[in-house]
């Protein structure tokens, strides 16, 4: 009787470790904001990226480290990958890199509508990063050089 139970527990533990996170898909930015960026007491660091964007992929480890080390913030990685590459590229990427920060896919193509909701000055180039902190929005359209570059920028803006 003990043996199968043990096996089940073991498998469950094991599989939860190797299983990648679920990546939620949103086709509308306003809905995404409501669903995952709306907790009043949370400071969000939202990074807009895509698997096809080399400078984005390069800076992802800095965001992962930030999520791990800076307990004051929650990192959300908003992928702008193409809808038809969700299964083929995004999911394998998240698995391979073992991303721990929350990843969501945003397929809202009405850029002209939602980009200004993030920030009016955003030209649309990625990577781009948004900090949501106590009703403030801090936005930057650039790549971070390294972890301390990112961490200093975040710390400076939330204190």
């Amino acid at each position: 009787m003990m043996k199968p139970l043990f096996l089940v527990v073991f498998l469950t533990l094991f599989s939860s470790k190797i299983m990648a996170q679920e990546v939620a898909v949103f086709d509308n930015y306003a809905n995404l904001e409501k669903a995952i960026l709306s907790e009043k007491n949370t400071t969000y660091v939202v990074n807009f990226w895509a698997t096809w964007c080399a400078p984005c992929v390069k800076e992802l480890p800095y965001f992962e480290q930030l999520n791990l080390e800076n307990k004051k913030v929650k990192v959300v990685l908003v992928s702008l990958d193409f809808k038809d590459q969700y299964e083929a590229k995004l999911i394998p990427f998240v698995k391979r890199k073992n991303l721990q920060s929350q990843v969501v896919l945003l397929t809202d193509k009405d850029y002209n509508n939602w980009l200004p909701m993030v920030n009016n000055e955003w030209s649309g180039a990625i990577p781009a990063t948004l900090i949501l902190h106590q009703n403030q929005k801090i936005f930057v359209e650039k790549s971070f050089e390294n972890f301390s570059d990112l961490n200093e920028f975040v710390t400076k803006n939330i204190n």
Partner: peptide, 10 residues
């Protein structure tokens, strides 16, 4: 003017 996503200039 309109906005759209794109690759940053290298």
């Amino acid at each position: 003017t309109t906005k759209a996503i794109g690759c940053s200039i290298k």
